[in-house]
Each structure stands twice: as C-alpha cells, then as structure tokens.
Design a protein around this nucleic acid. Structure first.
Lengths: 294, 294
DNA sequence: CACCTGTGATACCTCGCCGGTATCACCGGT
DNA sequence: ACCGGTGATACCGGCGAGGTATCACAGGTG
C-alpha cells in the first residue's frame, strides 16, 4: 500500500526543481530514462499526476507543488535523523548555533560569553549561514539552535525565546540629502529615486520587477551599499553594515525587529535547555517558551 | 555518502520498538536474517552502534534512542507527504478535524455549526482518536486540524488558537462522602483511599506503581468510573463522562484547561484559515496565531 | 516543406541487492 | 549435559533499478 522510498522523493525534488528530466538526471548522476520511469511509478503509486509534460521541460500541477514542499520537509527530516544520531554518538557533544553572517555581533558575543561562564557548559560551534537559511539548518539537523529575526524569518515549526527587540535604521551615503535628517519614514525611504531598494530573487530564481539592483547574497548587497548605489533598512544593532562613509538614520515606522533564539520544536537536550535559559536571563524579555527536558 | 531509505528507517523502528529481531521481522512480514543484515548495514552506513545485542533481545544505545525518535518523525513526514499530496489532488477538498473521543462535545458542535454557516465553507470530516494522538495525526498528515487541550497535550511543532479556558471537576459516585461537598482541592482528591486515581501506561508500556487500577483506554476508564472504582478530574465540559449516578464537584486548585484548535506549523490553506478564523470568533479569547496564507 | 534539434517515453538488457532458507554460534536455564 | 531461544552467517534466486539504444513528437529554420 504505502512505501515511498526517499530515493523517489529525491528524484521528484530534482525534477521539480530543475523542471527538466535531463538536467535532473545529470544532477542525480544517472541516466534520464530510469528517472522518467521512477517518476511515472511514483505518480502511479500515489494515483496523482504531479507533472505536466510540456514540450519544453515540465511544470508542476497543484498537487505537484504540495508534493514538492512536503517532500523537502520529509527529506530534511531524514537528513536530520542521520545528523542528530551521529552527533548523539559523538562522545563530547557540542551545540551548533547558526546565525546570519554579520547580524547581531555584540548580542551573539554576549550570549556566548554568558554561556561559557556557566559551570559545565558544553562547547558551542558557530555556523554562519545566508539569508533565511537558519530554519532549514535547524530542520535538517545541521544546527541545533539559531539566532533569528522576527518578523523576517519564518518561525513555523520552531520554538523560540525572545532576546532583544529594537528599531530599524536606514543606511545611507553620508553625502545624501536624506542623511542629514534625524529620522525618516518607510514612505520616504521606499521611494528614493537615486537609491532604489535592492531586489532579491524569488524562490524560482527570477527577480521581481523594479528599478533596484539585483542581488543574490549579503556580500553583493554590502558592495552596492558601499558604492552608494542602494539604501538599506536594517536593525539598529547590525554593525556589520556600517562604514565610515555612511550614516544610520532611524526609520520611525519600520516594524521593530525581534532577535530570537530558536530551536526545532520538540528538541530535548540538557545543553540546549541551558543555553536557552542563559539567553532568557541575558535579556529578561518575555520568554515564549522553553525546551522541555522530559 | 548519505542515502538512508525509508525502508531502513522502518526496519529500525520495528526492531527498536519490539526490542527483538524475530518479532520485528514478523511484524514486517519478512524473515529475520535479512532484517539483521539491514540493521547492520544501517549501523555501518551511520558509523554508529544503535543496538546492544543482549542474550535476551536487544536494547537501545543512547544514539539509538535519538535515532528512534528522529526516525519516527521522518517516517511521519514521509507519510504526511503522501497523504497531503493525495488530498491536494482530490478535487473537492475537505478538512479532517481530529479530537479525543468524548471531549468537548458542545464546543465541537458549536464550532462545526458556525463553520458550516459560513458561505463557501468546505466540508469537515471528524476523526476521533485516543488520548494524545492528535499531534501524531497532524504530523503524519492523517488530519489537518485538531482540538487539543493544554496543558495536557504536547503542542510542539503545532500552531494553535485558544477557544475556551475552563476549570476542572472531580467525577465521583453520588453516594460517596466527598460528593456532598460544594468544592474540593487537588490534595483531597489525589488521596482518596477507596477511589485511587487510575494509572496510565508509560511509553514503554509499563505502569507506574500505585494503588489505582491500570487502564489503557478511555473506555476502560469510563467502565471503572461507572463501577465507582476510581475518580476522575476532568474539564467541566466533558459531558461524555457524566452519568446519573455520578456527580461533578469543582476542584478549585486544579490547573485550568484550555481547549485549543491546533494545526501543523506552516500549514497554508484557505480552508484551514477559514476554520481558524471561525474558531477565534466563536470565543473571542486571545488568539495565539493564525495560519499564514501566502 | 523537409530537416534538424531537443524533449520525454519506450524497449530491452544486465546485474546488484533484497529477501528467503538452512544453519551456526552463543548462552542461560533447567 | 542438554535444550531452547537469541542474533549472525552462508548461500541462493528473482525482482527491479539503472544503463544503452531508440522512438515519437513538436518547433524552429533554411
């Protein structure tokens, strides 16, 4: 009746992402015909058509979209099982903490120092990641705990404790007229003709239309900011973006950003509980929860 | 490098749960030798010893315990992928709502009526389950939404909206001395010699020690209550437990029970959002969140 | 309009590995 | 010493995963 091996899920994800059997087969290091057959078998077993075979590659049916999202989650869960089991077997266990490169420098340092000061605290490995990759890393077991930022990061499936809430500032070239202002509004910064806001790729790797430059990474964006080609609205504490030739002006009506310490819902470990308690103590902001130690 | 087919996870879970290769093989409808080999191969690929082979069956290493928990989650995620994809393909989609049999009768009826009154509301199938099975059903895709009760049910990985908070009552035989009281305390009901509180099995199927009868299902417990062999502390609205020959006495210091409508974190569907909104409107208690519709 | 190109599907074959049977090695309790 | 029950090993057979060759089809393109 059921079954569904991870192999089939991996195949489907490859085809769904590449939208092309040939490229997917190449990515999977296999020939195209068995891949076609495997997908057909998957569709037969599910009793559901997942792909529309067009003349130029394939496209996803609505059910296929659901399958893609669910298959990614399931594959992440399998990866997490492997990683967490391996780490559980390693004698000296450490916590892997992941955070967006450049964000919350002082806060992270403070947290690590406070944690290291605890008697019997386990070591913490810091794993820097891009953009909103923290959730993925937590879900597939590459990380145990993450520093994330509401309302930007998707927190579904994660538990978290609040560390810090702060306002946002606009980063502008010092010579720009707006740089002399003591404060700004979102309406003002979102429509500055000579400093259009950068555009990030969507999930399908295309870019939304607009005048701003296209960027794919934080370092590209940093370069553009340094060149005075775009402006940025970021949490006040993100020092990594601040150069001498730029100024930071508070944006009054930008939504406040909350820095959170997050972990996979249901995680149960002594070490994690200790770190979360340390974080909660660091800033006695309202705790949203705490990892259970059964 | 990695791989890990769900077959291997299923095999491991069977052996870990049965703590016996032979019984696990029988449960899997296969012979014992290939099962042994598959587990050995799994351990080799992970580079981790998961099982201690004792003379009388097997026991789990600490890493094996981690693997068991993670493998269950991963297998649930795979099942969920299948179920959600099939349901996405079914033209006329319905929501599957699950709830503990017997709990929150009136509330559920009210919710279903209110939902049915909405224009364009999708159908709702009700799936009755045992004990704290709701979370499992949500995680493996057999249900889309559940009625759960804090602080009893584990809410990790789930989003929820509060529907109702209420006190708890003790259910006693009408003839019992305590039944004439207008209220009771936990201290009083937890130590009634002739009505010892029933004991539920732990996860390893053993029972905690104590004088109370051992029960494995709600219906067994109902039978014992009807026989006047045990007492019960339950939410005031759980009518299913109330017979003419019993009385309900409020227990003043019992923790209040909150009835919640819960769904898998990250679920995104128009139909679910509608139901959640209806539930939130039903009782304008504080909403803990709402499912995103991207 | 014939032809070439690039797509996924089909036909057919091979061989790896998954599972079955038979048996062993080990040990604990009579 | 013996027997029963455990998991491990040896060996074998068949299914199915994957490879190669090829087809069917639809668009461009001269």
């Amino acid at each position: 009746m059921d079954g569904l091996e991870t192999r089939e899920l991996r195949y489907f994800v490859a085809v769904a992402e590449e939208r092309h059997f040939g490229r997917a087969a190449e990515r999977l290091s296999m020939a195209q015909p068995p891949l076609s057959r495997a997908i057909q078998q998957l569709e037969r077993r599910l009793g559901v058509v997942l792909l529309e075979r067009n003349r130029r590659g394939v496209s996803l049916t609505p059910a296929g979209e659901v399958m893609l999202a669910q298959a990614r989650l399931a594959l992440d869960a399998v990866d997490a099982a492997v990683r967490r089991t391996r780490r559980a077997a390693a004698a000296r266990s450490t916590l892997v903490l992941t955070t967006k490169a450049g964000a919350s420098h002082e806060l992270l340092k403070e947290l690590l120092d406070a944690h290291a000061a605890r008697p019997g605290a386990v070591g913490i490995d810091v794993l820097l990641c891009e953009l909103g990759e923290q959730g993925r890393l937590l879900r597939d077991g590459r990380a145990d705990v993450a520093i994330m930022h509401a309302p930007f990061d998707v927190m579904t499936g994660l538990d978290s404790v609040e560390i810090l809430t702060e306002g946002q500032v606009a980063i502008l070239p010092a010579a720009h007229p707006l740089a002399r202002r003591s404060s700004l509004t979102m309406a003002e910064v979102s429509d500055v003709p000579d400093l259009p806001i950068a555009r990030w790729p969507r999930h399908d790797y295309t870019y939304p239309p607009g005048p701003g430059p296209e960027v794919r990474s934080q370092s590209q964006l940093a370069q553009l900011v340094a060149l005075g080609r775009t402006l940025l609205v970021i949490p006040a504490s993100s020092r990594a973006w601040q150069w001498p030739e730029h100024v930071a002006v508070p944006v009054l009506d930008a939504p406040p950003v909350t820095t959170l310490l997050a972990w996979p819902a249901g995680a149960r470990s002594e070490a994690l509980a200790g770190l979360v308690e340390t974080a909660g103590r660091l800033r006695a902001g309202g705790a949203a929860g705490s990892p259970g130690v059964s």
